[in-house]
Write a protein that binds this DNA or RNA. Sequence first.
DNA 1: TGATTTAACTTAACGGCGTTAAGTAATTTT
DNA 2: AAAATTACTTAACGCCGTTAAGTTAAATCA
Lengths: 204, 204
Amino acid sequence: MGIKERREKAKDNLRQEIFDAASELFAKEGIANVSMRKIAEKIEYSPTTIYLYFKDKTTLLHQICEETFAKLAIEVTKIREETNDPLEILRGGMKAYIEFGLKHPNHYEVVFIAPLDSYIDEGFEYSFDNSMGKIAFEKLVESVVGCVEAGVIKNGDIELISQTLWAGMHGLTSLLIGHTEFPFVEKERLIESLIKTMIKGLQD
Amino acid sequence: MGIKERREKAKDNLRQEIFDAASELFAKEGIANVSMRKIAEKIEYSPTTIYLYFKDKTTLLHQICEETFAKLAIEVTKIREETNDPLEILRGGMKAYIEFGLKHPNHYEVVFIAPLDSYIDEGFEYSFDNSMGKIAFEKLVESVVGCVEAGVIKNGDIELISQTLWAGMHGLTSLLIGHTEFPFVEKERLIESLIKTMIKGLQD
DNA sequence: TGATTTAACTTAACGGCGTTAAGTAATTTT
DNA sequence: AAAATTACTTAACGCCGTTAAGTTAAATCA
């Protein structure tokens, strides 16, 4: 069945071509400036061809983001190779999260900022379960557990603590990405300040 | 010049009619589901009439949001009437901010979540200066100053502290508004946790 | 080998959008 | 009475995501 295989590979190739073209356009121009028609033009196929490989625009964008966020999950765990200090692991993970968002603002936007109405209403079944975002969040939870077990942050509801930390990280990340009109103090100081403040707030 | 006045009043009336219709649609359906055409249909004028009273959709939406956020600035200062404890004022202001966002999710979205590309690129000159959002932020800064002067949070860069707090508040608000797919712990506990953690983190 | 099915892709179209240009009808001014 | 202004509309432009109905070439089957 060599022929069928070759066929399927060719199909995969075009799928990948679409994926890559969309990914590049998207990262470069942002969600608002990418249309199915532009993606099609870039790969020199008709717009409808895309629908043979991806259900719709939302699905395509989310798959692109999932790929990117798989890298976040990896990045966040890398810190464990550098230190065993649970507090340093937590701190490093938070920093990695924020910097990852700043490095991939358009991906961060689609997954964590945009989806107020955009995706929910029109029957798009995005489950945080099964998503790379969830895996990344679980890494955060693990870091929190590590800190609690080591006694470096005070005991309490792990979920509550993790979500509190996530809220802080997300707030800073999304503000820095989206609100260039605001006169923020130096980015690095702000990141430091948020991480430091929150972790200190969790110690006793 | 009674005639001209009457004319101008009539014009103001239609302007207000548009404003109110848009406001209601917007608060009810969210930004993604409001179009100029729908607003026009609601007031029973042609879509182009709106452009005689508002420059474009973005401007209209922002004016609606400004009106709403004027109320936030008021709400945030109300706490001062209830207590003189600077820490309570800060805490209360933070709580008011978050709850205001949850009460007006669509307005919060336009001003503080959406504008990644939406408004910046196409020559929309939104200055945070002159905005109600800025006034509300200044109230936060005042509360921080009050706490530092009373010695209840440790001395430091006021802007840095205020922006750190804002980031945390914004993060929680925007996550609670936009991410219904995530299994958050009880909302009230989460709000309490964030406020408590951040303020504790600022004390020494 | 010739007929038929299937796969891969395109053209045309639908119904939406924000916005602008040109037109109309009524009112006001001269 | 004529000219100018005001308040509005109709028609259109160029986008958008998406679907239905072809089309063409290759693969399968008789």
